[in-house]
């Protein structure tokens, strides 16, 4: 249970980190909060010659409004996100998702960027990023580029970032108007990764018709998922006519393939998933209607 030897690098700037990653090549890995990477190193599921610790890079932390969105630095801890009044008011879906991540001792070191770069389909932040059409900002020695959430999550624990690219921040669109948000998930014990869950946002017009909704799904595919066809079907309908159970059924019917493992079969996950969608829909709709 001891990690294999590695060389440790602790750059102070994003530019230095990006150069190091490019220089060191395949044998190097970014270390952020370590809450996913260190267990893998301890179990020797992964071995790297070099770890590039980004925990001392000040420009990677921060939460601020930028161009109509809320920008959060990749190195911002989950605990900081949880305590942020700005996150609670501008991106409520992120605020309600955060306390569901692991335990408070995990959130005091785990980072927003680490969770999104790790791209676990059962994790909360990737699903929230996908549900809200967040934009990822990445840097390499070739420069800076942005990747839309729908293009970012490439497969199980994999993203469309190049190995030498560093995730520096994530921009979450701010929803205005009469909107409501909820995350519901089922796990065997509090703090475990969810067996199935849903991250939902609903915006209503002045007469309670659905102006837009987003249906993000946790643990129901090899990446976080979204039921876009169902979102389009629901748009324009009076929210009072929509049965939450119907939304759950529609979403599960729209899923391409649901994983099956020792925590639950695909059929079980779909039943749990439908119930989580219905619960999250109920909460989000009530919040959108009554504030």
């Amino acid at each position: 249970m001891k990690p294999a030897p590695f060389e440790y690098h602790a750059p102070n700037t994003v530019a230095d980190a990006a150069n190091l990653l490019a220089e060191l090549g395949d044998g190097a890995k970014v270390l952020s909060g370590g809450q996913s990477l260190v267990p893998m190193l301890a179990l020797r599921l992964a071995v790297f010659e070099h770890l590039v610790d980004i925990g001392r890079i000040a420009e990677l932390s921060g939460i601020e409004r930028r161009n109509g969105a809320l920008w959060i630095g990749a190195g911002t801890t989950q605990a900081t996100v949880e305590a942020s009044a700005l996150v609670a008011s501008e991106v409520p879906l992120l605020a309600v998702a955060t306390p569901l991540i692991g335990h408070f001792q995990i959130r005091s070191r785990g980072t927003l960027g680490g969770s999104i770069a790790h791209a676990d389909p059962a994790a909360e932040y990737p699903a929230v990023a996908l549900a809200l059409d967040a934009t990822m900002e990445v840097v390499s020695p070739r420069g800076r580029r942005t990747i839309e959430a729908r293009d970012f999550f490439a497969g199980l624990w994999s993203t469309s970032m190049e190995p030498d690219e560093l995730l520096v921040g994530v921009s979450f669109p701010i929803w205005g108007g009469r909107s409501g948000f909820a995350v519901e998930e089922f796990a065997r014990r509090h703090g475990d990764f969810a067996i199935a869950g849903a991250a939902i946002g609903i915006e209503l017009d002045a007469v309670d018709r659905i102006r837009r909704c987003t249906l993000g799904l946790i643990g129901l595919g090899s990446t976080p998922e979204r039921a876009r066809t169902v979102e389009a079907e629901l748009a324009g309908r009076p929210v009072t006519d929509v049965e939450p159970d119907e939304v759950g059924r529609l979403v599960m019917a729209a899923l391409p393939s649901v994983p099956s493992d020792l925590h639950g079969s695909a059929a079980y996950r779909k039943r749990v998933g439908a119930a989580m969608v219905a619960r999250a829909w109920t909460t989000a709709a009530a919040e959108a209607r009554h504030g």
């Binding site: 440790y8 370590g34 260190v38 408070f104 001792q105 995990i106 005091s108 070191r109």
Partner: peptide, 21 residues
């Protein structure tokens, strides 16, 4: 959680942190 310590006041798992950090 057996290894929990406070680092700059925050409760963390000391098995998931390297001493250099």
């Amino acid at each position: 959680g057996a290894c929990t310590v406070l680092v700059d006041g925050a409760a963390v798992r000391s098995c998931l942190m390297f001493a250099v950090q």
